[in-house]
Write a protein that binds this DNA or RNA. Structure first.
Lengths: 266, 266
DNA sequence: CGCAGCCTTGAGATTACTCAATCAATGTGG
DNA sequence: CCACATTGATTGAGTAATCTCAAGGCTGCG
């Protein structure tokens, strides 16, 4: 049921073309799609990226793709599906660090360390594109503007973490939950371009609690309270944000996904 | 104009007081000092950095060096003194995001955005070296290995933030305070090389609370409890870590400052 | 000596947690 | 198509932790 990355990497190095359930090779790598949204890529840059292209990998719902302590060779770009990475605390609780959607880069912070610092778990089925860590060196040599873009992406992630640190260390349960919904909404909108206020929410309340540092019980009460205040409404696997202004106010939310500044790029 | 590695080494060994107390040679950029601790710099790289050198700036205790919303042109490298950056919450409380010591880079996450996301406040008097944001582009063009190092530093910062998110969203007051002391200890040790277990602590308990998401009252109680348990002892402006093992266990601390992996560097 | 900033301590209020039971939704097999 | 199992969500009651408000003590400095 749950396969680890080590299995995957072993099978990859053994017979690269024999990935099970492998989809047809895309003519365009996931990373190119991702980065093209942010800057226009030159021929040289496209060429540099295309050489890093690796076969994509499918994953099943609830699959654990890697675990804390695993040695790693790759970054991943999400092609399809939702995933999150998490750390288990000694007391049995769990902190969900980041929730990933199509277009997101997974495992960036780990490349400065020798082993994984989080588990990667699939929320839905989907697929990811591996991107060899060693290929980063090539990008830095051949495509400095791409390298700068990667730094920008890492720095934006950091800003988001700072925002979250502020919210989660001080705010009420309702504000934390509101923040999570707003952040997911902003991220999904930035990648899908969808402007609606309803978002798909495959996480259950226990997982929401793991994300924002609450128990499932407290999440339930917070969601109910937000509904009663008329700020959100929930369906089976969906959340609708009814009063964006009030929601943003109550958790001091700022959208960091709207822009990436490139003025200092080479 | 161009500085050689031997010049560099000579100036290093020639000014033994170049650590915390004294002021290093002005001819030596702060950033070179910082980065040299992590990798050996080539002549080209030193040359690329030396052109970015700007005059350093002194600051006074409690001075606010920049504020949320300011437009920015520079990163800063701390030359001397302690600072922190913080965000004021609408309810009047404050979140201290990061505490900076000599050798640290300030303002990195902001360069992906157009304005500052935090205030920068001096804890003690000291000085910083501005490093023009536009110079980053040059580094990415001319010195890809330096660029990769900068990315690594940003990614390490991100890992530290993830650790903190985990601790501050779930742990008890005692664990939060213990974590702060351990992190400061690890950082100071990594830059000064000091192996002692006593650390200088210019922050008052209100500021400690702003760092870890507690009130000054709770900080006082947590510190007292840690002392009664024999885990730490405090003097006027100093904290001594008496039982590192137990402290690390209670807050699940990991030292991220011990290593930077460079195996993928160009 | 007296002031100001900081730390400590107490008591009650608030908030989220734990434990436990129940309800609702979803999926499965007969 | 329905009975049943499973998972997830809700609700209640009591507990534990931190917060707020407030008073008092300590320390360094003019």
């Amino acid at each position: 049921m749950s396969r680890t990355l080590s299995d995957f990497e072993a099978s990859q190095s053994g017979s690269p073309a024999a990935g099970r359930g492998g989809r047809p090779q895309r003519t365009q790598s996931c990373l190119v799609t991702k980065l093209s949204q942010l800057i226009d890529l030159s021929e040289v840059e496209l060429d540099s990226l295309s050489r890093l292209q690796t076969e994509e990998r499918d994953f099943a719902r609830d699959e654990v793709l890697f675990s804390v302590g695993d040695h790693h060779q790759d970054l991943y770009i999400v092609q399809d599906g939702w995933l999150f990475n998490a750390i288990d605390a000694p007391d049995g609780r769990r902190q969900i660090v980041n929730i990933y959607h199509p277009g997101d880069i997974i495992g960036f912070p780990d490349i400065a360390l020798s082993t994984r610092t989080t588990d990667l778990v699939a929320v839905t089925k989907g697929s990811i594109c591996p991107f060899p860590k060693s290929g980063l060196g090539t990008v830095f040599m051949e495509a400095p503007r791409l390298a700068a873009l990667l730094l920008s992406i890492a720095l934006r992630e950091e800003t988001v973490l700072i925002d979250r640190l502020r919210v989660f260390s001080r705010s009420s349960a309702q504000a934390r939950v509101a923040y999570l919904f707003l952040e997911l909404h902003a991220r999904l909108r930035s990648t899908t371009g969808d402007a609606g206020n309803t978002l798909y929410m495959p996480l259950n309340q226990h997982e929401i609690g793991d994300s924002v540092g609450l128990t499932n019980v407290s999440v339930s009460r917070a969601v109910t309270a937000l509904e009663e205040r008329g700020l959100i409404s929930t369906a089976s696997r969906e959340v609708t944000l009814l009063d964006m202004e009030e929601l943003q106010k109550m958790c001091d939310f700022e959208d960091r996904y709207a822009q990436v500044v490139t003025d200092w790029f080479p």
